[in-house]
Design a protein around this nucleic acid. Structure first.
Lengths: 241, 241
DNA sequence: TTGAACTATTTTGTATTCAATCGCGCACAC
DNA sequence: GTGTGCGCGATTGAATACAAAATAGTTCAA
């Protein structure tokens, strides 16, 4: 989704991971997003500019830009004169998020059935294999990341840029919510529901695919303990002010 | 939606328009967004940093931050080493946008019916009056802006922060699309459809409210000339490269 | 007259610098 | 021991300065 304009004619088009070449602002934002999705940056943690700047090997200027981008996406919150923090979604935001996903993901499934070509199906199947593999290895961190990536892949197959962009924001936030409200050690995504969804899409069974998607989302949500005032901090402003 | 953290304890809480006090980054982004919504900044126009900096009376630093925010929202496009330009949506993007609005606005209407309180209804009525007034005065610029604001007001009444944020992005883009593809001088929003929608919401007639909203969106879209290759610029890259 | 190459100017990208603000810790009073 | 006030250190906010890139303009040659 990012990397819209990479016509740098780079003589070494390889990934150039880490600080080999100076990462651009998008790279920085992506890597922070990844760290959040892999639960390596917990909700609420402070993202000090200087610390990030030295970690990425750039000046604070670029870090600030990346942070403003991420704040617009809702992944971090900026408090004036105090700094940037990874968002810590409230219970209400968690409920809103699932309500939104319940609204748009059925549409994604419907459109994917109508528009997905061989290539899309192939990518989805390859992804499912990767998920299966990570599950076998018990690589929880990868499982979490891939679970989100699956829904992104579907969104891409549906081909609506606005919905795709929205899902790109909701996926990392879902990871945050899971990290906040998940019961200690439940599996990231119920076993093989992703497989069933792809099966239904491939045989163009719209009603069944939508049903499975909704059930899947409900399963994920029901794993959480959103029963009020759990971990969420009290809103003193609203209580008094 | 913006202005989340304005506890500046400002001794003069008035609007402070223009360059009286230094505008913060959000103000700058808001004012650029407004200019786009009022068709004062046409699609495709270049937003030179220095020019904006002097116009707002701040350094380029703040302008750059505002521009990166707006680019994340999709209102401007950034081309490396070339600058920022107001987005010029393609026909495909216009279709995607209306498809997305057709998906989420019925849900907004449904939720608004379920959750809207007296205050929401009052605000909506007041807004309709303002629209009527602008229409009477023939103030086209205000009409356009208020037409978008109406849908934002509904989204706020529905109370889902994610959907609200999405609408906050789609509204300015809709203005851009209208400005690009509108037939010369059609009215901004068909007469009193907004009034009918609010009526249906007030009497909690869900089916009718949704029907009216969809019809309304279709009317707006059908005013446009999206019949391929109209004003949209040719994609030379794809044509050859 | 067209086209190419070079130079100059403008504009963007990035780092650095300096000012403003916040939070923490210590001291002191109650 | 609890609470308040002050000051220092650390961090963010914003402008400036400098480097890199692109555009525009000009000259010269075919």
């Amino acid at each position: 989704m990012r990397k819209l304009h990479t016509d740098k004619n780079n003589p070494n088009p390889k990934r150039m991971d880490a600080a080999l070449a100076k990462p651009d602002v998008e790279d920085i934002a992506d890597r922070i997003t990844n760290a959040v999705m892999e639960h390596r940056l917990p909700p609420g943690i402070k993202l000090a500019e200087e610390r990030l700047a030295s970690a990425f090997g750039v000046s604070r200027t670029k870090i600030r830009q990346a942070l403003t981008m991420l704040s617009r996406e809702g992944l971090v919150k900026l408090y004036p004169n105090r700094g940037a923090f990874v968002t810590s979604p409230t219970v209400q935001e968690a409920l809103d998020l699932f309500a939104t996903r319940r609204l748009i993901e059925p549409e994604i499934v419907r459109t994917a059935i109508a528009r997905a070509d061989k290539g899309d199906l192939k990518r989805l199947r390859a992804h499912l294999a990767a998920e299966e593999d990570a599950r076998k290895r018990g690589d929880r961190r990868t499982i979490i990341k891939l679970s989100g990536a699956f829904h992104m892949l579907l969104a891409e197959a549906a081909g609506n840029s606005f919905i795709e962009k929205l899902m790109a924001e909701l996926c990392p936030l879902t990871c945050l919510i899971i990290s906040l409200y998940d019961a200690p050690q439940t599996p990231a995504c119920p076993e093989n529901e992703h497989v069933q969804i792809v099966d239904a899409i491939e045989r163009k069974d719209e009603a069944e695919a939508v049903r499975l998607m909704l059930r899947h989302l409900d399963h994920v949500r029901n794993e959480l303990r959103l029963g009020e005032a759990e971990k969420q901090d009290i809103d003193w402003d609203q209580m008094f002010g």
